[in-house]
Nucleic acid binder design. Sequence first.
DNA 1: ATCTATGCCTGGTGGC
DNA 2: TGCCACCAGGCATAGA
Length: 272
Amino acid sequence: MPEIAEVRTVRKVLKDRLVGRTITNISYRYDGIIKSDKEEFKNILIGKTITDVDNFGKWLFIKLDDYTILSHLRMEGKYYIKPSTEEYEKHEHIIFNLDDGYDLRYKDVRKFGVMILAKTKDIYNTLEISKLGIEPDSKDLTKEYIYNKIHDSKLPIKELLLDQSIINGFGNIYVDEVLFASHILPTRLGNTITLDECECIRKEGSKIIKKATECGGTTIRSYTSSLGVEGTYQKYLNVHTKVNQKCPVCGNIIKKTRVGGRGTYLCDNCQK
DNA sequence: ATCTATGCCTGGTGGC
DNA sequence: TGCCACCAGGCATAGA
């Protein structure tokens, strides 16, 4: 499940490998991934050259001069670069033929991912991107910003940290880790979180995302290797996936519960 | 306005 | 071994 650290890793690999390549053809094996006009997507992009690959939170931006593909991997989206002669694998839905004999292939077992074509100058005005908040390790993220966004909310802090319009890039794994590091129970309501605790969330969140980005992200429940997403941060996880194991800080047994419909791991001794 | 429920999806798993 | 209900969950959208 790619979160901001994983998306940055994919971005880097794609950028190193794709800038300068021209798209010679596009074919759909399942076109539900494309959420903008499917024919226009092909017509505009064929013949264009990739000029940059960027990201904002979990969104990838594959830029081709005046147009950009906005790509969200959701749960299981992955990109591969492989020779055009190679046989298609199951779940490879979108195929971009490149001018060097290779393909960029988008694979997504559960088909949750999306691609949208936008004009590059309009990226930050689109419905999807304009609403996004501040990235977790941005210097623009302050304790006051977080406090103002959550201090009158009756939602659990975990749900608030997963809200991309507040902080842009956290997913289920890192939110569990940030709340553990901040000694805050995921079920605490937004209106009970103090300014000092917001500072803790900011500081720990930034630290965790920076470290995870250095590690190339986290690889859990991964059954195939994927281009650029073989991260190693899983060895630093303290609570996520650690149900019934000992808390590395206090030795208490880590519990798994459900908060906002999501599997949630916590130490109820360390977190209050 | 704000919160809750549902749909999107497939593969893995546990129960029988 | 096979069948099946259920679970994983980011996000949009419909409904309350």
